[in-house]
Amino acid sequence: MPIEGAEIVKAASLLGAGLAMGLGAIGPGIGEGLVGAKACEAIGRNPGEAGLLTRTMLVGQAVSESTGIYSLVVALLLLFVV
């Protein structure tokens, strides 16, 4: 069974989607873990400010998550558009 060019392109785009998602998830994972750990330390030291700290933590995590979201968008483009 001969392999045509379009199939190679499809296989490459699927492989690229998997690589983009897998590698792109490393950074946000580490970053969100660090933010959560520091927020836990801060809440342990100063429990009265827990509300403010949780709010700031969520915003910081969502910002550090954005690179992971970009890789998700790239992976979806590779899956459905290419």
Partner: peptide
């Protein structure tokens, strides 16, 4: 770009 793609990616990724 970052603010709009963040919301879009989260919601659409959840959908999928």
């Amino acid at each position: 770009i970052s603010i709009s793609f963040r919301l879009f990616g989260n919601i659409m990724g959840g959908d999928i």
